[in-house]
Simulated scan of single mutants.
Amino acid sequence: MNIQIFGTNKSFDTKKAQRWFKERGIRFQMIDMKEKGMSRGEFDNVCRAVGGWAKLVDENAKDKDTLALLKWLDESQQADKLFENQQLFRQPIVRNGRQATVGYCPEVWEKWE
């Protein structure tokens, strides 16, 4: 397994995900999205794995203006705008190769083992 956890240190669900993998002795790479965002290739792969960019959006994000803008943009521009504003992502985003989850999903991670 090659686990990557994208999130921030302030995210409660990101901390829970890290603890879940640590408790099972599964090595992972933590990517702090405040320091280093997701690359375009990673973003595209995660979107494919979870069923589209809309699944990545955190409706409770603090940046309400960009959230509102995202809803009104043309469909062809929405994914690009979300990629540019990664603070709108639900956390954590956990990748294992071509598989990915958004949010705290231990029921899915168990199947990866």
Rank of each mutant, 00 (worst) to 15 (best):
Arg24His: 12
Phe12Asp: 09
Gly37His: 00
Asn9Tyr: 12
Glu84Arg: 14
Asp80Lys: 02
Val46Asn: 07
Glu113Arg: 15
Lys81Cys: 14
Arg98Cys: 01
Glu110His: 08
Lys81His: 14
Leu82Tyr: 06
Asp32Leu: 04
Gln86Val: 00
Lys34Met: 01
Gly41Ala: 01
Trp112Gly: 12
Glu23Thr: 13
Met1Gln: 12
Leu70Asn: 11
Gly97Tyr: 02
Asp74Met: 04
Ser39His: 01
Lys36Phe: 05
Phe6Asp: 12
Asp63Met: 04
Gln91Leu: 06
Ala49Asn: 11
Trp72Pro: 00
Leu56Asp: 09
Val50Thr: 07
Glu110Val: 07
Leu82Ala: 08
Arg24Asn: 06
Trp53Ile: 08
Lys62Arg: 15
Ser39Met: 01
Thr8His: 00
Lys55Trp: 03
Glu42Arg: 03
Lys55Gly: 00
Lys36Leu: 05
Arg19Gln: 14
Gly103Leu: 11
Leu73Val: 11
Gly51Ala: 05
Arg24Ile: 12
Ile3Ala: 09
Leu70Tyr: 13
Lys111Glu: 04
Asn85Tyr: 02
Met30Gln: 03
Ile3Leu: 13
Phe6Ser: 11
Gly52Val: 13
Phe21Cys: 12
Asp44Arg: 13
Arg90Val: 07
Gln78Ala: 07
Trp109Arg: 11
Trp109Gln: 10
Val94His: 08
Leu88Val: 10
Asn85Arg: 07
Thr101Ile: 13
Gly103Arg: 08
Asp13Tyr: 14
Lys71Ser: 07
Glu110Ala: 08
Glu110Phe: 05
Lys64Asn: 08
Ile5Pro: 10
Gln87Phe: 02
Gly51Asp: 06
Glu42Ala: 04
Cys105Gln: 15
Gly97Val: 01
Pro92Val: 03
Ile26Leu: 15
Glu23Ser: 14
Thr66Trp: 04
Ala54Asp: 15
Val102Arg: 11
Lys71Cys: 04
Ser39Asn: 05
Ala61Cys: 07
Phe21Asn: 10
Cys105Phe: 01
Gly41Glu: 05
Arg19Val: 14
Ala61Thr: 08
Asn45Phe: 00
Asp65Glu: 05
Gly37Val: 00
Trp53Gly: 10
Lys15Gln: 14
Val94Gln: 08
Thr14Met: 09
Pro106Val: 00
Lys15Asn: 11
Trp112Cys: 13
Gly25Thr: 14
Cys105Met: 14
Val57Arg: 06
Val57Met: 05
Val50His: 06
Lys81Gln: 12
Gly25His: 15
Trp53Ala: 10
Lys16Trp: 06
Pro106Gln: 04
Ile3Phe: 15
Lys16Thr: 03
Met30His: 11
Arg90Lys: 15
Ala54Cys: 14
Glu35Gln: 12
Glu42Leu: 02
Glu110Asn: 10
Asp74Arg: 10
Glu75Met: 03
Phe43His: 01
Glu59Lys: 09
Asp80Gln: 02
Phe89Cys: 06
Lys62His: 12
Glu113Cys: 15
Lys15Gly: 06
Lys22Glu: 14
Pro92Leu: 03
Met30Trp: 11
Trp20Met: 10
Gly7Val: 09
Gly41Lys: 03
Leu69Asp: 02
Glu75Lys: 09
Cys105Lys: 15
Lys111Trp: 01
Cys47Ala: 09
Lys34Asp: 03
Trp112Ser: 12
Asn45Met: 01
Lys34Ser: 00
Ile5Val: 14
Leu67Phe: 03
Val46Arg: 05
Val108Lys: 13
